[in-house]
Write a protein that binds this DNA or RNA. Structure first.
Lengths: 147, 147
DNA sequence: TGCTATTACTTGATGACCTCAAGCAATAAA
DNA sequence: TTTATTGCTTGAGGTCATCAAGTAATAGCA
């Protein structure tokens, strides 16, 4: 199993390649839905829960003014809706519309390369990958972020 | 170890989160070097070997005309050099300059979050992650792409 | 209460990114 | 040679991304 142990540089290289592959699959799927990668990424964040403009900017690690434009374009397509917060009239919560939800699901379903690759793993491999990624990128351990 | 087995949807979600985390770390490191993520990604591809404009476009999954602009800007900073191919005068091979190599290495070294996370893994975990990523995204199995 | 931050969001300017359509030069195919 | 293909660049048009500046609402404090 543990073949020869990769150096850290090799691991970094592989991470770069992996994310390159994932990104390609993702943006192709997004393009199929007529969306840019940034737009699709934004929808993905909102799939979990609505978020304010500020929260989106933080999550997506970009300037708030950038979010204004992205949400403008998503709203123009009825994939998303701005709702003024009832508790703080400065903040606008961005909510996915039903069409937006469908779009996210469609994009994820269309990531054929990634799906095919995951299908090739057995349960133990999937659990291991999930766990390792969680430890590396999310600081978690179990499938539910078991602290 | 194999805790409860994650569903495919959970795995997809985690891949998205992981990608997000990696990308954030990467583009921050690139910004430290005064480069955009696309420019840094291009330099990274060239770190392995020189490539023609066409090859870069294919690898980065974008239009060839896009590469023209990116390489223009990299060349303006002496990080990269265009060399007319001796065998086909249409193609231009893009080669990393010494400054370009230094820059790639500096960016990779500055990915603190990722480095810290990898440091927290033991040898077996690293080997497992390397192997799993290879199978999912590169269709390979061992540290050397053992076919 | 009223004054002063601070915060959330938007706008406008500027530059990079990205795609498409069109064009030129060099090579390949007929 | 004639024709097609390939590699790259240019230009138009739209998105992405940041910064600086502005408006509106909230929070902190005398």
């Amino acid at each position: 199993m543990a073949e020869t142990i990769p150096t850290k540089a090799q691991l970094m290289e592989r991470l770069a390649d992996s994310f390159s592959g994932y990104y390609g699959d993702f943006s192709l799927a997004a393009a199929d839905a007529g969306l840019s990668a940034s737009q699709a990424k934004t929808l993905g964040v909102l799939r979990a829960a609505p978020a304010s403009m500020r929260a989106l900017a933080t999550t997506l690690a970009c300037d708030a003014s950038n979010i204004t434009g992205i949400v403008d374009r998503l709203e123009k397509r009825d994939l998303v809706r701005r709702e003024v917060s009832p508790t703080d009239r400065r903040v606008k919560n961005v909510v996915l519309t039903p069409a937006g939800e469908e779009t996210v699901d469609a994009i994820r379903a269309r990531m054929h390369t990634t799906h095919a690759a995951l299908d090739a793993l057995d349960d133990a491999d999937r659990a291991a990958l999930y766990d390792l990624l969680g430890r590396v990128f999310c600081g978690s351990r179990g499938p539910r972020g078991t602290a």
